[in-house]
Write a protein that binds this DNA or RNA. Structure first.
Lengths: 178, 178
DNA sequence: TATTGTTATACTCTATAACTATA
DNA sequence: TATAGTTATAGAGTATAACAATA
């Protein structure tokens, strides 16, 4: 019993001709997925990022670029490795991102006198000006995301997410490829 | 004032020779990023998915595969389009995923008598057997993720994430390319 | 005409190895 | 020898267009 060929016994419960495999929008049973933290995190993150992309489409800025610009804004003179470590971006992957920011005149690499291997990162005037717009866009975006959970919900969500992150390990302690 | 060339004025506050650009693990200022819901969601999701990948490495199952297997398990006979819609996966991208599950003998496509364009999806015996292991692995994984926030924290986190998702729009209402 | 599964393709994000120039 | 930035490359995940078979 229960030892038939896979291909044979699996083909039962095939929808009958009149049965309609499922009423079209048939509320598929997702099982325990909606109770799985990782599943909900992924859906929520995708939804929020999509709102982010819509919100920042007019300025053509993506989440990673926003994060890098913000870190440089708050820490002018940081090197690429330091930005990489701070944001969990591989050094190798930061190169193209910075290239685009630099070619758009938003940020730049400046030589470091004390270590000629490194570049110190700064925002340009245009970059600083853009950040004001980005922060305004961000306020509206964040309001949209958290409008339904209210200020207390927002604080609680942040705390819970931080605890989840802490429970596992930050998920990107190694930015290096060693 | 404030109208100098970008390249010129941006290169101030370059770390002096003795200054040390930043003490090595210098706690970089992330600005408002840690208060940004999307940023925390991304970090949390990455951390949880990494734990997922570690947990399921022994059975060589990835999050998308686990989701598809779970949906088929709970809805035997579903078509590929229905699974796509349920999980927000593009029809075109589900093909390779199902190919891998089928070639591993975990799931299979069965012809549908009432519509010869469609395939009804079923788990094989091996697939059903594997699901028991997957659910066991998942219990441990979920426990690890939510151990610090406790059962009430877990319920609250789910509710908050669902509200965030609902506030925006589920993020994948269109699986089709029309 | 519209839909299902499929192929081909492309773009983003991420990950690794290896190179260079410096330290 | 080790590190910073870089290049090349490869792998997921995701997106669109178009096609054959079928409805």
């Amino acid at each position: 019993m229960e030892r038939q060929s896979r291909l044979k016994n699996a083909a039962r419960r095939e929808p009958e001709a009149g049965e309609a495999p499922f009423a079209s929008q048939p509320t598929v049973d997702l099982g325990h997925l909606p109770e799985l933290t990782g599943y909900l995190l992924r859906r929520a993150q995708l939804a929020v990022f999509q709102d982010f992309l819509r919100s920042y489409a007019e300025v053509d800025i993506r989440p990673g670029q926003y994060a890098v610009l913000t870190v440089i804004e708050h820490n002018p003179g940081l090197t690429q490795s330091q930005v990489s470590n701070a944001l969990g971006i591989k050094r190798a992957n930061l190169v193209a991102l910075l290239d685009s920011l630099e070619s758009r005149g938003l940020a730049e690499r400046a030589p470091v006198a004390s270590d000629r291997r490194s570049y110190a990162l700064y925002l340009t005037d245009d970059g600083r000006k853009l950040m004001q717009r980005l922060h305004a866009i961000n306020a509206a975006h964040e309001r949209r995301v958290t409008t339904r959970i209210g200020p207390e919900g927002r604080v609680r969500l942040r705390a819970l997410l931080n605890e989840v992150i802490a429970a596992i390990g930050n998920g990107c302690e190694d930015t290096d490829e060693s």
